[in-house]
Simulated scan of single mutants.
Amino acid sequence: MSNSLINGHNPREIFQAQALLYKHIFAFIDSMCLKWTVEMNIPNIIHNHNKPITLSNLVSILQVPSSKIGNVQRLMRYLAHNGFFEIITNQEEENEESYALTVASKLLVKGSDLCLAPMVECVLDPTLSGSYHQLKKWIYEEDLTLFGVTLGSGFWDFLNKNPEYNKSFNEAMASDSKMINLALRDCNLVFEGLESMVDVGGGTGTTAKIICDTFPKLKCVVFDRPQVVDNLCGSNNLSYVGGDMFSSVPNADAVLLKWILHNWTDKDCIRILEKCKEAVTSNGKKGKVIVIDMVINEKKDENQITQIKLLMDVNMACLNGKERNEKEWKKLFIEAGFQDYKISPLTGFLSLMEIYP
């Protein structure tokens, strides 16, 4: 092959660039394959089989036409290459390949303690994912969010007007909360000594229930939109209150903001934090606000973690929100009237921030 330069690059560099482009051109197929395996209930089928399942068994359970068996095999091969299944060649099954769950696909088993299938179903709903075809139009709209452009209203208004999608969104957020709960089990010091806490935007209370179980003397209020909490029942130390966090937040020793602030502009975040500050300084008390969110740190994070954080930042930009680095977080805290803060790692890509008035 000729080593002559084309536009200043050798052929090897150009072919690598082409491969990168093709990878991203067809990246939507990754999401659609993931959606397919959840829709087909394949993780549950393998889980219920109690051992790796052969292709012939799998397509029999799925009642796939014989003409599509090869296509199922190709989808499973690709999903296995991406880490969602493990392909095992079983000598007892006449060398027919079998599929086993990996850690990632175990997170898609519906009904399990840690299941992110609702997140897949919500985010990859065509109504939501289809909006991303309009990024160009959105960029030229001065004030509208991406969903304002495509759905005719802001995302939160859309949820209020569409009960079925609101239900799907709440289930997705609840599934994500279970993952955060796994991390919170090692954060006892954060909640020790507190008598009361408000979980702002706490949804159906998945996180609050875990905290209440761990600290039975802690009184916890889940505070969210009336549409979310109106028909929910509390317990001895757990209650639900509907309201608007931009107007007021119930008083407590601590306020929890879990994956809330990244949804909003800096200006809106300051308004929310100011209301939280009022809540934790009522009656002369000096409590704290606990923020669970991403902190972008390109210099220290692994490339894959940074990629997830920057990907989420683009996603939040479409809601007029953003993911922030420490400098940007500090600026928000100071402008909202807080004096000090502490950042601790929580999950692979989320941090826990304690901020003090």
Rank of each mutant, 00 (worst) to 15 (best):
D340I: 09
G321M: 02
G242M: 07
L184I: 09
L273H: 01
C220V: 15
A252Q: 08
C220E: 08
G201Y: 04
L146I: 01
K327L: 10
H49K: 10
A104S: 14
K51W: 08
N236H: 12
K277F: 03
E96Y: 09
S131D: 01
R77T: 13
S168G: 10
D224S: 05
S31C: 13
G8M: 08
K209I: 09
I210A: 14
K167T: 14
P43A: 05
V222I: 11
T54C: 10
L62F: 06
S235A: 11
D230Q: 15
S248P: 01
G148Q: 03
W138T: 08
K217G: 10
N48H: 12
I46V: 08
V109T: 07
I305Y: 08
F215D: 03
Q16M: 12
L146G: 00
C212H: 05
E335V: 07
Y99P: 07
P345A: 02
K167S: 12
I180T: 11
I308D: 04
M245D: 03
L256V: 03
T145W: 01
N7G: 14
C276N: 04
G242D: 04
K267L: 11
L184F: 11
L20P: 07
F158G: 04
P65F: 05
L144Y: 05
D293V: 01
L273W: 03
G130W: 07
R12M: 11
V198T: 09
K110T: 15
Y341H: 10
F333V: 00
L189V: 15
A336T: 05
E298W: 01
L184Y: 06
G70H: 06
V295G: 00
Y240D: 01
V280C: 07
S351Q: 13
L346P: 01
